[in-house]
Design a protein around this nucleic acid. Structure first.
Length: 576
RNA sequence: CGGGGUGUGGCGCAGCUUGGUCAGCGCGCAUGCUUUGGGAGCAUGAGGUCGGCGGUUCAAAUCCGCCCACCCCGACCA
């Protein structure tokens, strides 16, 4: 690649609307441009990185026995009606009509299409297991696209789907993918961890997310400091201690004028927040539900969704309080709260000596005991774990970390195969539904995640495996004939040996060339400058460390050959 | 969708409170000469419906109304 002939529009200043490192640097370094919110153009260097990442994914998927296919982005409504997701997916799916007014969706995921493909073309146990994957565009009309590639509305995803004869086979396929995923993220230069995850709209019972730890990550995960327990906060369990106990005294109403929040009331009564019961009113599918949690905890709505078996709920709003005047905002409590479903966090089971709202203006109750003074319809884990909580599996403590979710794997079971009648014949000729699994990697998001983990204040620092070029040849003062010739020769030599090289053949000052090189982030740099005039040496520099050494071109070549050896198989051969 | 904010040449911004003498700065871009180990210097030049529509006014980037786009914070996901 000759830099003078390659479309790399670098920016001297950071675009004002890019906040996180990956977004800012990918824009500044000319890898990306934004077209509309959550929609991006990939420029030549960006495409190269994407190819590298896809290449690694392909190798690992193929090695794991998966076969690459391509599925359409445009999908007919009928297929989605079969799985029930045409209605369920909601506004997140981009929808359109053709000229005959037929409904189509732009695929946010491909379970329906793939299930349709397999059910009509695979019918014998002899053909199973089968694992099919593709790398292509997905569309999701995100509520709020943000952070560049991190949450886009059109993005590139690798999605794989496995079909097995039984649950055992499905678990085996799942394990294969799980292991391949680890290798993929490691090869891309990322540190990562797999955590237990919720299944959401995709469905199924078992799922893991692959997280790349990064401050810019949107996901919170809980990790045990002793055992291997790790889970998304939406799923993270924690062991509760013994519930607080009272002294068996009778319930007593205390006047608490103008004190509504846990903090205000607790301070007034001289009680710690964990001695208080927070009573949250939710409207679940149109009816009120009381949710009880300890005063020092937060409810987790993903956990609540599982308890309610619905995602159609919300915390009471102004209009809801007005509509149900029985519930006094700021003074709601479980005692005497009749005719409403009560859900409580398991930590409140058997709790005594608690304080809560009295369902009476300006009053709270003390000495309240669960079981004696009020009844709970259902106990469940509905609160967020937090730093220092007890691990659910061992004696360790949990700590919290933020990460970028770059992949997720699911054991789907029979969800789609039953709904869509994806059956096969076993040895006895009996028709059975296939056990499915699905496995996604956000390719474009992974590119952003790599940058989040590999950059400094000056620019990107690509790992060799995914760099758009491994070597940046930089002749300073390109007008000097001898340097220009040396640079051209080195460039040709490397290209012929299969390396990907970016040659800075621009007539720019040294400062500009170095600043751009730092920004673009090629792992190695060969500078041809004064040293070359003096004694024919060039300087080999490493982007990551910034360290360099002068040596003969021959030695530089030998050193680079050594460094590149293990990556040789990844080199794309379209250097031009 | 709720809350906060921003829209002025390719990028970053000033001007808006107090309407006119306000379309400006830095970078980038073009041409020429000099320069070339950390974002060079000088000279000349091109480039803007001041997000859009409407209103107020003798006069609007500036005041008012509506709309649009984008960013950030919250509920979703690869």
């Amino acid at each position: 690649m000759r830099q003078s002939r390659t479309f790399i529009p670098t920016l001297r200043e950071s675009p004002a609307d890019a906040e996180i490192a990956s977004h800012r640097l990918l824009l500044r370094a000319g890898y990306l441009r934004r077209v509309a919110s959550g929609i991006y153009e990939f420029l030549p260097l960006g495409v190269r990185v994407l190819r590298k990442i896809s290449g690694i994914i392909r190798e690992e998927m193929n090695a794991a026995g998966a076969q690459e296919i391509m599925l359409p982005v445009l999908q007919p409504r009928e297929l989605w009606e079969e799985s029930g997701r045409w209605a369920k997916y909601g506004p997140e799916m981009m929808r359109l009509k053709d000229r005959a007014e037929r409904d189509f969706g732009l695929g946010p995921t491909h379970e329906e299409v793939i299930t349709d493909l397999v059910r009509s073309n695979v019918s014998s146990y002899r053909e199973l297991p089968m694992n099919l994957y593709q790398i292509g565009s997905k569309f999701r009309d995100e509520i709020r696209p943000r952070f560049g590639l991190m949450r886009a509305r059109e993005f590139i995803m690798k999605d794989a789907y496995s079909f097995d004869r039984d649950e055992e086979g499905m678990r085996e396929s799942y394990r294969g993918m799980y292991e391949a995923y680890g290798r993929i993220f490691s090869r891309c230069g990322c540190t990562w961890r797999a955590v237990e995850a919720a299944t959401g709209l995709i469905g199924g019972d078992v799922s893991h997310e692959f997280m790349v730890p990064a401050a810019a990550g949107e996901d919170c995960i809980a990790l045990c400091d002793r055992c291997s327990y790790a889970a998304n906060l939406d799923l993270a369990a924690y062991r509760r201690g013994e519930p607080p106990q009272g002294e068996g005294k009778d319930v007593e109403a205390v006047r608490t004028p103008d004190r509504r929040t846990i903090g205000e009331v607790g301070e007034f009564l001289g009680l710690q927040p964990e001695r208080m019961i927070k009573c949250l009113m939710y409207l679940v599918e149109g009816r009120p539900v009381a949710v009880l949690i300890p005063g020092d905890r937060e409810a987790n709505e993903a956990k609540l969704a599982r308890v309610f078996a619905s995602d159609e709920f919300r915390l009471f709003r102004e209009e809801d309080w007005k509509k149900y005047p029985t519930y006094l905002q700021g003074f709601v409590g479980p005692v005497g709260l009749d005719g409403v479903e009560v859900v409580a966090d398991i930590s409140l089971q058997g709790a005594g000596g608690m304080a809560c709202g009295a369902n009476r203006e300006d009053y709270h109750l003390v000495n309240v005991e669960e079981g004696r003074d009020f009844c709970v319809g259902r106990f469940a884990d509905i609160t967020n774990a937090r730093e220092g909580d007890a691990c659910p599996r061992c004696e360790g403590r949990l700590r919290m970390e933020t990460g970028i979710e770059v992949g997720q794997v699911f054991q789907l079971g029979l969800k789609y195969s039953q709904a869509m009648r994806c059956y096969y014949h076993d040895e006895e000729g009996v028709s059975r539904p296939m056990y499915m699994g699905c496995y996604g990697i956000g390719v474009t998001r992974l590119m952003a995640a790599v940058v989040e983990q590999h950059h400094d204040e000056r620019g990107i620092i690509w790992p060799l495996s995914v760099a758009p070029a491994q070597l940046h040849v930089i002749p300073l003062d390109f007008q000097k004939e001898n340097r220009r010739r040396a640079a051209e020769e080195l460039y040709e030599t490397f290209v012929q040996r299969g390396w990907e090289v970016l040659l800075d053949d621009r007539e720019e000052s040294a400062g500009v060339k170095f600043a751009d090189a730092d920004l673009l982030g090629m792992p190695f740099r060969l500078v041809i400058g004064r040293g070359y005039d003096e004694d024919g040496t060039v300087e080999l520099q490493e982007r990551a460390t910034g360290q360099g050494a002068r040596m003969d071109a021959e030695d530089a070549l030998a050193r680079l050959e050594e460094s590149f050896r293990s990556f040789r198989n990844l080199a794309a051969r379209d250097d031009a």
